[in-house]
Design a protein around this nucleic acid. Sequence first.
DNA 1: CGTGAATTTGACTGACATCAACTCAGGTGG
DNA 2: CCACCTGAGTTGATGTCAGTCAAATTCACG
Lengths: 251, 251
Amino acid sequence: MDQLPAITLPGATIEILKARCATCSMHQLCLPMGLDMGDMDKLDKIIGRRRRVAKGDVLFRIGDPFSSLYAIRLGHFKTYQINAGGEEQVTGFQMGGELLGMDAISTDKHYCSAMALEDSEVCEIPFASLEQLLVDMPTLLRHFHRMMSQEITREQSVMLLLGNMQASQRFAAFLVNLASRYEARGYSATAFQLRMSREDIGNYLGLTIESISRLLNKFKKLGLLEVANRELRVLDLPRLKAITAGTEPCG
Amino acid sequence: MDQLPAITLPGATIEILKARCATCSMHQLCLPMGLDMGDMDKLDKIIGRRRRVAKGDVLFRIGDPFSSLYAIRLGHFKTYQINAGGEEQVTGFQMGGELLGMDAISTDKHYCSAMALEDSEVCEIPFASLEQLLVDMPTLLRHFHRMMSQEITREQSVMLLLGNMQASQRFAAFLVNLASRYEARGYSATAFQLRMSREDIGNYLGLTIESISRLLNKFKKLGLLEVANRELRVLDLPRLKAITAGTEPCG
DNA sequence: CGTGAATTTGACTGACATCAACTCAGGTGG
DNA sequence: CCACCTGAGTTGATGTCAGTCAAATTCACG
C-alpha cells in the first residue's frame, strides 16, 4: 500500500525549483532534476493560470472532454466514478504535488470526476502543449512516464487492499498511506487532519461509515491513535503497519 | 467494466501494419495510424526478438529490475501481486495485443509478477530504446500515453468492481469484459475458453473458488450461459450486462 | 441557540467464507 | 487398455465479518 513519496529531492533543490517556477511552485512537473533554466522557462510558459476550486466544487466530471491535466498546488481532492446505479465509488484522494486527469488521455474524455475536499488551488496544464514539450525535454518525458506509472501502481495497491484485506487492515493501510504522504511533503506523519468525510473513507475502502466509525473507536481503544472529529494523531505507526501487513492479529 | 477495445483500426490498416512489422505483427505499438514506412523500420529495429513463454512460466517477477516492456503476441497472462502474508492478488488477465510491465516504469522495478496461463509468445521492447524513439515519433508518443492511460482506467474499473459490486455482478462484469475483448480481436464474443483457473478468477474478483463455482451454476440455471470445464458459451449477453449494471436483480 | 447533517452506538441480518466430503478430468505407468 | 492417482472443480452444512436498520448523540453553521 505504501505509495512512494512523489517528491524525493533534497530540500534545497526543491526550494530552488520553487523559486524558479513562477506560476506553480509545487507540482511535480517542476521536479525532475536536471532541468536547465531554459527548460524551466519553457515549462513555465505552457502552465496555465492557477485556478481556485472551492470546497465541494467539481474540477472535472466524468465524460467531460479532456484538454488539460491539473497539478494540485494546494488543498485536497477526491476522484470518483459513478456506477450504473448512480452510486459513487471513490477511487482516490489527492493532495498537493499530485496530478489529476491522467485517466482521460486514453479516450479524450474524463473517466472519473474530481471534487475539492477543501478550498484548493490547481495549475492547469494543457495536455497538447505538454506533449509537444515532452519531445524537447527527455528528462521531463521520463518524469511524466514515471508519474503515469506511479498511478498504475497506486491503483494496483488499492486492488490488493479491496481484494484480500480485512476491514481493519484496509483502514490501517489507509492511515499508513496518508501518514507517509504527509511525511514526504514535510508535514507531520503522526498528526494530521482527515480532509475527507467518514463516508468518503468508507466508500474508498469498500466499507460503510458505521464500520469506519467502529474501526476508529477500536484503534483508539488499542492505543493506536487519538481522534477528535477529523483531527487525528497516530500513536503507534509501527503497529498500524503491522496490522496492514496482517502480521498483527488486531483483536 | 467495459474495456475499450485496444484495437480500433479498420481491418485493412491492421493487415498492412501486420505485413510491415517484421518481428511482431500483433502488438499495439504497431498500431498508431500515420506511421510512415521509415517510422515502421525504426520501430522494428528496437523490438527485441520474440520470446516464448511456456504455460506456468513467469515472464517477470515482483522486484525484478525493469528494462523492457512486453507486448503479448500470442497467448494469455495473469499479473499478480504478493501481499505481506505471501498470498497472491491477481490484478489482471492480459491477452494478445496487450502490453505488460508499465507499472515498473515508476521505480525501475517490477511491481507485479506476470505468469503465462498457456504457452505464449511475447515481444520484448527495451524501454530505453522505446523512449528515445518516442521523441522522434509524436504519433507513437501519443499512442503510448493512451495505452498507459488505458491501464489506469482499466484498474479504476476493477476498483469499482471490488469496491461496490455484489458477487454476481462482479462475475457478470468479468464475463462481459472477456466477451468484449475477444470480440475486439475478431473472435467470438459468445463462445470462448476460460484460460484461467477458477482460483485465479476468484482471486481476481475478491471471491472464493466455491463462490465462482456456485455462480457458474446459478448463471447456467438462469439460462445465461453454458459451461463445460473451461469451455464457455454465453447465451444471454444483454442480461449479463444488465446484471453487471445492477439493473437485473439476479434471483 | 436551534436545526439539520454527520457521526456514533447497538441489535440483528445476510452474503459470502470456511470447512469438509465428494466428483470428475486428464495424465501416467503397468 | 485400464486402474490408479492427482489436482481441479462441485456441492452442502455451518460460521462469521461486515452490512443494514434504527435510535441516540454530537457537530457545524446560520
